[in-house]
Write a protein that binds this DNA or RNA. Structure first.
Lengths: 410, 410
DNA sequence: ACTACTTTTATAATATTTTTTAAAAGTAAT
DNA sequence: ATTACTTTTAAAAAATATTATAAAAGTAGT
């Protein structure tokens, strides 16, 4: 096999010409993946390999079918360069994004293009083998639909809520029943490796690779849906902590005299701010006769869920907006703690509540400015995600490619 | 000059045999610095350079005077290896640690050995050119005492409280009056580069290089003296945030109904927990007739400061211990927030209060266990620093060597 | 269209690095 | 002491990568 670095577990150890060549191939493939079509000269600059050698390596890659010629680039004052790009069909990546009540699947080619996308909304995340079986089947359907054999899949990325130990491929909160661990179990079913991570962290990877966090070094990504998740890019790298439990932002102490949280502690941020709380508050108020667009939902027998609340907010429903504003004070206070500890350059609001856009950004910004040290808050941008519901799925792709191109596929 | 990597600003860019050789020298010097005396075979393994080449490079380094032969090592079942070590006298590093009321200086050789150490306790940190002039003079005295010329100094590391932008060598809180910025100004005075950083961060570097954080990847180091500082090692690297303002742990919100903090906000941790508060509380109580070892201090006209309080605690003074215990609840709560956000493997208590050892570790541990999620707290060790007051000074050495050996000396 | 300049690409000559091989030096067991 | 094994070191041979050079391809101004 010519490109073992795409498959082998590790590529380290003593000096070895073959391994060095693998590393050179890897550098070139990485450049083409991260920067798109490129000339030999560009690769020379980024790889620090000499021009004759890069030319010969690219020639090899053309022969292997990994790389394609992609025309001639613009002149920058001299001869126009030949451009090369990755062969999009050389390998594929499977993306799996699971939430409590949905299963999203995607197939990506080597140019990050979606070649398959499906969302199953009737899915329910349960700790049963039946549930994993559904996932395995749906992935098989995806591959069959596109006529892609498992050998053509580099790896799958898997995004799941709860405590996840990405390093060992273990999910502690959900689908935790398998003996092998979820990652290894699914890998054995699929015939290709599966990289697990927590949903907030895959979202952060997605934002880093394709969203507003691109080219930024210190970014915090909030997953505001029914709960509160936090994925952190620190010093340019995803931060997971010792056991992969970092980012439990929903369970930091905000109100010492507050309510009991599901985690067993008192006054966690999540008892004051979360999509779940917001929906519950609005439902309760409507039951007590509060006027709102959402009151008609109830009459019509429609479910009042987070999606409906966000829609009402966007439609200008004053009551829903007020309720969101109230929540934003607590969220702002919590974010100030993050700001003071981590001095990030950007905080990205993602998750279902991110669809509310400025209705969440504006009040949170206001509260943060009230509570934060100016020197720190003035250097930070608070924005809502562009990728929105696709962030996690894009992040699974990014996590796979990062592992492959950094040479460690476990 | 043979070893330009020790001096040059950067060493990047296109392929170049000379630069590559510098990089090879750097790898070998780094191995010898971080692991002490080593054989050719050991260097081969860590550097991934072939044995004949390593042998020839080490030979070069012997010729340059950077490396010395240091005898013959133990056999591991075959021929005994020749060992090599850095020449301790090849270059020196100046360490400068400033607190509000002290100036500590050190000179380190290439084996991390202290060849000079002096502490000026009558020093006061003021924002005047007179103050920087004192520092410059004291450093000159240090070098003269040891008869070391500025050319023999690789760089100085400088630890200072307050907001520091290490990347640009700027101190915002103290000694901020120079036009060039403190780092560049001192550099121009000394004739060698000066690397600035915040005191909590240099302490963290010291712990990472020489203390309990050695070989750990995710460690939080608390500087508990009159204020509260936090230095973080995340993913194995020092974390500074976008502008070098990360770690403002003293200003996270703990009590929404609390007191006004010096930073202008309400209820910061520092209004509840700090050496200053502890001393003040004890002083006030003694004025009101509280029995304590420290009451006699007052009668004898001695100053009741943090050092005296810690001494009383270690001597078993129940009142002082009680006061410390009270503070530990707030500190514990604050640390739980850190724990949930960052899932560290270790938290090291440093600073003047660290001298209290178990008297601070035990109560804080108790409160953390009360407020933290078990899964996260049970994986974490809370310990007090071994390096104590030397941590920052050792950290300045570590920061210089890290910059030099990672090839960027700014 | 010509000149002077640029960048890209290809090739040959040179330099560097690794692999291979073997000798030197040592351990451990008989 | 001898044997069989190990690791370390050294030196020659082979492989690999870089530098230098030149040709090819293009721009821009006259």
């Amino acid at each position: 096999m010519e490109l073992e670095f795409l498959y082998e577990k590790t590529l380290q150890g003593a000096v070895n010409a073959k391994k060095r060549k693998q590393e050179q191939y890897r550098k070139i493939v990485a450049h083409l993946y991260y920067h798109g079509a490129a000339s030999i000269a560009e690769i020379v600059k980024s790889s620090k390999i000499s021009q004759p050698l890069v030319a010969s390596l690219v020639d090899d890659l053309l022969g292997f079918g990994v790389v394609l010629e992609s025309g001639i680039g613009e002149s920058v004052g001299g001869r126009r360069p030949n451009l090369f790009c990755l062969n999009p069909e050389y390998q594929y990546v499977v993306g799996i994004d699971i939430t409590l009540h949905s299963l999203s699947l995607a197939l990506f080619d080597m140019n990050n293009q979606l070649v398959y996308r499906e969302e199953y909304k009737e899915f329910d995340l349960e700790n049963t083998s039946n549930c994993t079986q559904i996932i395995v089947e749906k992935v098989k359907i995806a591959l069959e639909t596109r006529n892609i054999k498992p050998e053509k899949v580099l790896a799958a990325g898997f995004s799941i809520p709860g405590l996840v130990d990405a390093e060992h491929g273990l999910s502690h909160t959900h689908l935790s029943f398998t003996e092998l661990g979820l990652g290894a179990y699914l890998g054995s079913q699929f015939g290709f490796p599966v990289l697990l991570d927590n949903d907030a962290r895959t979202m952060a990877l997605g934002e880093k690779a394709f969203g507003k966090a691109k080219d930024k070094k210190n970014v915090l990504c909030l997953n505001l849906s029914n709960g509160i998740g936090l994925g952190m890019i620190l010093n340019g790298e995803l931060y997971s902590g010792k056991n992969g439990f970092a980012g439990e932002f929903g369970h930091i102490l905000i109100d010492p005299d507050g309510k009991l949280c599901s985690c067993g502690k008192i006054g966690c941020l999540e008892t004051l701010t979360s999509g779940k709380i917001l929906v519950q508050k609005i439902k309760d108020a409507i039951d007590e006769g509060q006027a709102s667009f959402l009151a008609s939902y109830k009459k019509e027998g429609k479910r009042i869920d987070l999606r409906a609340v966000v829609a009402a907010i966007l439609a200008g429903d004053q009551f829903a907006i007020d309720q969101l504003n109230q929540m934003c004070e607590y969220l702002g206070k919590g974010l100030v703690t993050l700001l003071h500890l981590l001095n990030p350059e950007m905080i990205i609001i993602g998750g279902k509540l991110a669809h509310a856009g400025k209705f969440i950004i504006n009040p949170v910004t206001m509260w943060m400015n009230k509570y934060a040290m100016d020197r720190i808050s003035s250097e930070m941008e608070l924005v809502s995600s562009d990728l929105l519901d696709d962030a996690a799925l894009m992040g699974t792709m990014a996590s796979v490619m990062k592992k492959v191109l950094s040479n460690r596929l476990e």
